[in-house]
Design a protein around this nucleic acid. Structure first.
Lengths: 226, 226
DNA sequence: AATCAATTGACAAAAAATTAACATAAGCGT
DNA sequence: ACGCTTATGTTAATTTTTTGTCAATTGATT
């Protein structure tokens, strides 16, 4: 299945390509060259071509790239062509905020369950989804073929809960807890360490004045955040 | 002031060093070698020494690093020794969740104001902070010496609001809106593009089975955020 | 049909980041 | 005090990432 080990740096840029291609598509633009995209996105045309070619020849010499086609292909690469079934673990403020953010659903990320240790919030409904006690989680994951768990529990219980999730057959964890999870390698972990991000901003404020690139991309770090 | 242009890759790793050093310190451990830290954090000892030396010689040959001292120094580098004064712009679910997350305050990031366009939420109190109308924002920023704005408005109004903030003298923007902001270079922007992060996770699930590193760092990265 | 302009995909070069190696300095034990 | 061990800071090597270049291919134009 796998070809030759694609770097996370490249993968991290794909969502941004997708976003700009979506905008072009919505404007009714059918074709785009790497140079045009370069001008809009402020990355080199060479990098765009290199990145896209990592996954295949989506363009045509002398023509450029078909916006709609490229959009779809990148979406497929990112796994957006298939449905993802998620649960939120930890019904605190952040967990609730994520459930209420409907953009994810439009991308095929379906929030199917919410779990919390606290009996007081169990039973409460958030956007139509009932908060359930942790005890029901294992069965729920299996019965509803959940593949991703969003971990929004306090940092001191994160490791423990993550191990439960791993045991219950979860394939990926979107980790908002401020710890590094140690799990079997077949389980994918994507960290969102908000305080790390804020500290990076703080650093860049402190070491001010420098002519940093304003146009960095998120993650990796943009530079931002990432 | 500035020495020789420090890479964002290095900066992005500092918060993680800080986190592990804080844990060691809390355990009462006074000294640590790059090799010990390497074992705990799963990065090479060489990288740790290289990273730390970017900012100065914090260690001592034959001894290692003093945990408390190193912790403090990294904190200073990240600007955590001084107070940061923030406002939240956009009192939606995410904005409210961030205000309620008290860990930031412990690091010296003080939420002093919340602003929203919607008259219905104005006047509401979130953790003691009153939501104010956007019209009052400019004065508030000046009167309270706000340096960072947390941008949690919908993506279609983000650019507009960001320009207001820039005009009002904000120095940094922590941007949760799913757009790239185009602002004067002296304004630092740190992006948190959550959907990008989720797509990365989706990719790594799709291209499964690969023996990806379980121990990647956030941002950037890491394969996280950032 | 033939030429011209545009633009990719591939390869090469350059730059950046990571890892390795090692000389040097500090502590520790005898 | 002396030698041995430890572990940094630094330089060098390696690897990865990014950027530049160009032949080859397509579409447009005459």
């Amino acid at each position: 299945m796998e070809e030759k080990e694609i770097s996370q740096a490249v993968v991290g840029r794909l969502p941004r390509y997708l976003r700009y291609l979506g905008e072009l598509r919505d404007e009714g633009i059918e074709r785009v060259s790497s140079q045009e995209l370069s001008d809009i996105m402020h990355v080199t045309a060479s990098q765009i071509r290199q990145d896209l070619n990592t996954f295949g020849g989506f363009g045509q010499q002398g023509y450029g790239y078909n916006v709609g086609y490229l959009y779809d292909e990148i979406g497929k690469i990112l796994g957006l062509n298939r449905e993802h079934r998620l649960i939120i673990v930890g019904a605190g403020n952040l967990g609730q905020a994520l459930v209420n953010y409907t953009d994810f659903e439009r991308r095929g990320f379906l929030f199917l369950g919410i779990f919390d240790h606290d009996q007081k919030v169990c039973g409460k409904k958030i956007r139509g989804i009932t908060v359930r006690p942790m005890e029901e989680m294992a069965d729920f994951i299996r019965e509803n073929q959940i593949d991703i768990a969003v971990l929004t529990v306090p940092k001191n219980s994160a490791a423990e809960v993550a191990e439960l999730l791993a045991a219950d057959g979860i394939r990926g964890i979107w980790n908002f807890a401020h710890v590094d999870l140690q799990l079997p390698r077949h389980i994918q972990v994507e960290n969102v360490h908000l305080s790390d991000s804020l500290m990076k901003l703080s650093y860049n404020l402190a070491s001010n004045g420098r002519d940093d690139l304003q146009w960095a991309e998120s993650g990796q770090e943009s530079r931002s955040l990432n």
